[in-house]
Design a binder for these strands. Structure first.
Lengths: 181, 181
DNA sequence: GTCTATAAGCAGATAGAC
DNA sequence: GTCTATCTGCTTATAGAC
């Protein structure tokens, strides 16, 4: 194994530890020292690799690549529900880190706002109505609320329910919001 | 004006400043110094009155008293929508402070969980079904997501819309979730 | 009663030894 | 290349002067 490979490997380990810790306690309470300890490396090494805590966080929340959905109107509700069903229970740490910190860390809030704005515009193309963007925003807000309540706050009834149960109950709500006519 | 009155008045001013600051930046980033500056008093005075930062936060999020709703089944959806319509745009700083910090401050998370559990049980009495608690949880999660998205993250389409517009769009969703049979 | 001064602790970041 | 030691800054909290 070359030096470059080794370096890349430890960098990935640090990034994974950072993602997990940011997801668990948020930006403020997560410390470089804590990340280093979780990754089994020296705190100075983390700084060496990532330069600053901000940069580490930026890298941690950078999702592995969310490909935009092709949206056929009349299908939007089902697509969203399917995405929710898939994500519930196995949301990646990068997304959770972003959710966890977005209310208290300005950079995280900004990142979420721009990512959401793009998603809203995308969804809105599937809702050809004057208030399409508002409807899309509501769909996003509902999905976000659900993830926060279940994965971050761990509200009991939501955590015990299966993704299928939840999706079934939400279907009428999503259909009414994404109805194209 | 007696000493006691004066003291009570400054205490209220500090508490108001604390509520506003906690609501704006969350528990971690809000400092005693910042609260004191906003209230126009000495930082040491804040400590004198409230003892510790935790206690100040505890007092700040203690809502002025939310009376439990009497729930007639078949009316739950309308009651909730009315509550949302009323709250949107004028959510009190105490609630916002709690929302802002609940993802990153363990005490706030715990407070929210217990308050929510009570609310869920309450709503569930209006949904006489085996999955009543799950449905009630979804209603709470949706309301929470909406408040967070609009008041805290300030997502544009949601902030520009009127409460009436939002409530109208959500009505079918709430009715399907709270349908009693 | 109110404020000044300071203690004590922990954070991120840096310089330099090995 | 990796780690030790340290610097600087900020926080809560306290002790004591006025």
């Amino acid at each position: 194994m070359t030096r470059q490979e080794r370096r890349r490997q430890t960098e990935e380990r640090i990034l994974g530890a950072a993602r997990a810790l940011f997801a668990e306690v948020g930006y403020e309470r997560a410390t470089i020292r804590g990340v280093a300890a979780a990754a089994g490396v020296d705190p100075a090494l983390v700084m060496q690799y990532f330069g600053a805590k901000d940069e580490l966080f930026r890298r941690a929340i950078h999702a592995p690549g969310e490909q935009p959905l092709e949206i056929a109107p009349e299908r939007l509700a089902d697509l969203l529900l399917e995405a929710i069903r898939f994500k519930l229970g196995e949301t990646d740490d990068g997304s959770l880190a972003l959710f966890r910190s977005m209310l208290t860390h300005p950079d995280a809030a900004e990142h979420f706002r721009t990512a959401t704005a793009r998603q809203v515009r995308e969804f809105a193309t599937g809702i050809p109505r004057p208030d399409g963007e508002l409807r899309a925003s509501l769909l996003v807000a509902i999905s976000m609320g659900l993830t926060i309540a279940r994965e971050l706050l761990r509200l009991e009834p939501l955590q015990e329910a299966t993704p299928e149960q939840i999706v079934d109950l939400l279907r009428p709500a999503f259909q009414s919001l994404s109805a194209s006519g």
